[in-house]
Design a protein around this nucleic acid. Structure first.
Lengths: 332, 332
DNA sequence: CTGAAAGCGCTTACAG
DNA sequence: CTGAAAGCGCTTACAG
């Protein structure tokens, strides 16, 4: 069995309370002498705090549970976790991630996590979507990350897709582009919202889109679906109103646009500008020319989520849209 | 505060012990009547077991800590976790993953995990490497995954790189190939071990390698380093002894080999066979022709690690090499 | 078949 | 400045 406070107390000739105060109670008043002695003995015996014991006393363990809809594997999901983890660490909390695989109900996964009496629980979606949280869970899940909770009973943190699209369009406009096409990701929430922002920003400038086209044939975007990008680019270039900028649904799509433009003998950004969403660094920074793209606020969502969870004052539930951030490279 | 056993006991008019037995003690003898009544009340009150309380009694929480050297983000790492998680679940344990970022010592991260009194702790490396575990941790870390622990004080689970290379070479030989080149990943343990297996299998057949070449210029393989693959392929094809098979360090390298062979007007597998390591499904299955490749035993390492950790009888520490598995597609 | 009590390792009022 | 005791919510001998 591991060393306990009473082992240290015995060895130091003081009470357990004194040991507890010396090791953990930063503010507990006692002679520096005693404190030093206790710490030395603890170190010598290799004492490791028993958080389970502290937890049963306090009613909670220094954990924040994160239930995610699938294994955390994409770079985006990793960023969310990074954000959560950084903020948790500063607060002395650890992140306990459990994934909600297809077989189970959200409720059963949340209960599983609750058995450990975490300080708080978050739900994180792997991509921006709508999620219905069962009403019974509104009390136990403190914040929804990367998804919109329908009932409005719990605070949701999502990327400001519409704002991000507006921003990149304005940037294209500021660079002098006027005929802008959008090869968008179809069938997903992010795509629909970005299209709204795209159209709004053009309208604001008194312009019309040159074309809003789906990157793939299937109604739901997937990297596996057969791509329409190359043929769209050809169509756009053949038309009377040839675009001077193409906005892409993500960096992968942009890569295909690059290839199609190269085939057509067009120079980026001189003949035509290309911009997109995602900022997959490995990809975007290595394209030639490096790609200007809107980075998603994944890390910020993670950080803010943790701050909300650990804040003393609970705020009324709301939907919070976090801003994208423009990564300027050389494609515009 | 949450519902406790005593709340249920009071409501049911029985002792706490009876409630505990009814809910958790599968074998505890009591009238079916009592058990049903207790269960109904627990359900009604929304009781959730307090594992912290049980943990302080038992001395451990139903957790297995996994310390990993970096955020779990690659598909390989995900497979390890999947293996661990599946086996943990069957044993009623949860996986508690903590990543060991560059700033901290392994020891401090392990201690952090130990505060939660997990049932066991594993260490997982993101790629096959040598790791020195500080001697003090030999007692607390039960198994090393995807790395070789130098001192031999703790069981290590690694892919059998040498055996995997032998197997794929034998497969190429069985398909009638005789002049085999290897474009290997330089500067990493996996590459060195595979090269041994590659040479051994050829020697066994009385053959010489046509060439063993590094995929990148830098001494350590990285996807970002400038690739030498295309020029190697040209060199190999121009030589007198043109290879009839090229083994590749990973699927990415194979993809580049495909491109170079296409440029040279060579057909796979008729003119030349291509095989590799990794089985990155997205990539390997979508190449044309689909790529024959050796899959790494990541999931198996995870599963076995958990079995070792949770086994009653501790085995003496040893190095266990897990077999690759051949994924036959159409490139050989 | 069931209860009352002890105890796991902590922290927190309550006394001195 | 320090100690003895109570109590967090469980489980596990010990009695009946």
């Amino acid at each position: 069995m591991a060393i306990s406070l009473s082992d240290i107390a015995e060895r130091a000739g003081v009470s357990v309370k004194t040991v507890s105060g010396a090791l953990h109670g930063g503010s507990a008043r006692m002679s520096d002498d005693t404190r030093q002695k206790v710490k030395a003995i603890a170190e010598e015996l290799g004492y490791v705090t028993n958080l389970a014991a502290r937890g049963v006393r306090q009613g909670w363990l220094p954990l924040v549970g994160v239930v995610s809809d699938g294994l955390i594997t994409s770079p985006f999901a990793t960023e969310i976790v990074r954000g959560l983890d950084g903020a948790a660490r500063s607060a002395g909390m650890a992140v306990f991630a459990v994934n909600h695989s297809s077989g189970q109900s959200i409720g059963s996964v949340v209960d599983e996590v609750q058995q450990f009496r975490p300080r708080a629980v978050a739900y994180a979606a792997m991509y921006h979507k709508d999620v219905d949280l069962p009403p019974a869970l509104a009390g136990s899940v403190g914040v929804m990350i990367n998804c919109r909770e329908a009932s409005g009973r719990v605070t949701s943190l999502v990327p400001d897709e519409e704002g991000g699209a507006r921003e990149i369009v304005r940037y294209l406009l500021a660079s002098g582009r006027r005929r802008i096409a959008f090869i968008n990701l179809p069938g997903i929430l992010a795509g629909a919202l970005r299209e709204k922002g795209f159209r709004a920003a053009l309208e604001e400038a008194g312009l019309e889109p040159i074309g809003v086209l789906p990157a793939v044939r299937r109604s739901v975007y997937s990297d596996r679906a057969p791509s329409l990008v190359a043929s769209h680019v050809e169509t756009l270039l053949a038309a009377g109103q040839r675009p001077d900028a193409i906005l892409c649904g993500n960096d992968r799509v942009a890569m295909e646009v690059y290839a199609a433009l190269a085939r057509a003998g067009l120079k980026i950004p001189d003949d035509i500008a290309v911009a997109s969403f995602d900022n997959q660094v490995e990809l975007a920074s290595r394209l030639d020319p490096p790609l200007t793209t809107m980075a998603l606020p994944h890390r910020a969502m993670g950080r803010l989520a943790m701050e909300i969870l650990l804040a003393g004052e609970p705020q009324p539930p709301h939907l919070r849209k976090l801003p994208f951030h423009l990564v300027e490279r050389a494609s515009v």
